[in-house]
């Protein structure tokens, strides 16, 4: 995973709530067996509408997506995170996320920042007034800075550390392989064995 410390970029205002993972990437794109190349599926149904914000050339090259509450609800598909990453987003800002999407994003180096609705609306206004508005997302200080505003955001220390260091979860867990083996030695005898 790529390390994440401070990211500066421009943003796309997505004035919608309940952007579920079926909208982020429809199921038809989930048939692939690869892990990259999902950018064509990102918001594919909505992108057919020429007035959809991602089609506005003023927001070309933006790397921060600012969306309404309940972003990434629904299906567990990690493809939603891959599609956002592949398209070029490094950060999503929303008042609230679907749990599984949030977990997936933090494992893939896509920083999902939670800011209050009022801050999201200020960001929308800023980038709609001037799409070139520069937004600084600082994971070290846990702050978002734009247009003279500074908003603090919360992220648990462990997730933050993993992102800052770009660490792979499996490698971290395997340092405790002995503890796993020890646990397995006293699991109840009536447990299910498939094989």
């Amino acid at each position: 995973m790529e390390k994440f410390t401070v990211h500066t970029g421009t943003a796309v205002p997505l004035r919608r709530s309940n952007v579920d993972t079926d909208q982020i990437i429809p199921a038809v794109y989930l048939k692939r067996v690869t892990r990259t190349g999902f950018e064509d599926g990102l918001f594919s149904a909505w992108r057919e509408d020429p007035s959809f914000v991602l089609n506005n050339p003023a927001y070309a090259g933006a790397s921060i997506l600012v969306a309404g509450p309940e972003f990434g609800t629904g299906s567990s598909r990690e493809h939603a995170v891959w599609a956002l990453n592949d398209y070029g987003f490094r950060v999503v800002v929303s008042p609230r996320y679907g749990d599984i999407f949030r977990g997936n994003s933090l494992k893939q180096g896509l920083l999902t920042v939670e800011l209050p609705q009022a801050a999201v609306e200020t960001l929308w206004d800023l980038v709609e007034a001037d799409p070139a508005t520069s937004i600084e997302v600082d994971l070290v200080a846990r702050e978002v800075r734009a247009g003279g505003h500074t908003w603090a955001f919360a992220l648990d220390d462990f997730s933050r550390w993993r992102l800052l260091e770009g660490l792979d979860d499996i490698g971290l867990t395997l340092r405790h392989a002995d503890a796993i083996t020890e646990f397995e030695s006293h699991r109840p005898a009536f447990g299910v064995l498939v094989g």
Binding site: S76, E78, F101, G103, N104, K107, D169, T173, I180
Partner: peptide, 20 residues
């Protein structure tokens, strides 16, 4: 509970998941 593909890989490799 449902998990993403990174976590699927994690469970396949370790039979565990880090969870708060």
């Amino acid at each position: 509970f449902g998990i993403g593909t990174s976590e699927v890989e994690h469970v396949l490799a370790t039979q565990t998941l880090p969870q708060a």
